[in-house]
């Protein structure tokens, strides 16, 4: 059962084709799409994030989320929520990670929870909630996960949080 290591041609064309499909589907709602060798980052408008997730899941077999990140862009007064999705089921695309991002207003960062599409996002969304302060609507348990119970300051990964002693 020895497998010979085979170097597949990791064509950027494949990524480009997927990018074209996504662009065709979302059109004006797609803010930007960035294709690299094995990574694609697509940024959609905040109200279409659920549709984009379902689209990735249904059409390309992106069945799980690697990470959910929140990035605080203090200068733009915006927050970005990034889902890194990948696939186990679709072996051809298993090396291609698609980052699905959306910009949210910093004052009231709210976005629908994608647990319905990707159950694997559950704890990562909870962590993003407490660390960055993005509220995921529809999450069954939007509570503290890692931070201490008596944490009383702003979410620590926001850029305006000052580390004590720094």
């Amino acid at each position: 059962m020895t497998e010979t290591p085979k170097v597949e041609p990791k064509l950027p064309e494949r990524g480009k084709k997927i990018a074209e499909d996504i662009t065709a589907k979302f059109g004006g709602d797609l803010v930007s799409i960035d294709v690299k060798l094995r990574r694609i980052k697509m940024k959609v408008k905040a109200n279409r994030i659920m549709d984009a997730a379902s689209y990735l899941n249904d059409n390309f077999g992106y069945d799980h989320v690697i990470s959910v990140s929140g990035v605080d862009y203090l200068k733009d007064n915006e927050m970005e929520v990034v889902y890194h999705a990948a696939t186990y089921g679709n072996a051809e695309l298993s090396d291609l990670v698609i980052a699905l991002a959306a910009r949210l207003p910093r004052d009231n960062p709210k976005t629908p929870s994608l647990i319905a599409v990707w159950p694997s996002a559950e704890y990562a969304e909870r962590e993003t909630f407490e660390m960055v302060g993005i509220v995921f609507e529809g999450h069954p348990k939007m509570e503290r996960l890692i931070l201490p119970e008596d944490w009383h300051e702003i979410p620590p990964l926001r850029k305006d949080y000052r580390n004590p002693g720094r």
Partner: peptide, 16 residues
């Protein structure tokens, strides 16, 4: 190591 090979893992022979 096999599905998204990095470094020189694609030149090495191993089973999963």
């Amino acid at each position: 190591r096999r599905n998204d090979p990095y470094s020189v893992y694609d030149r090495l022979d191993f089973d999963i």
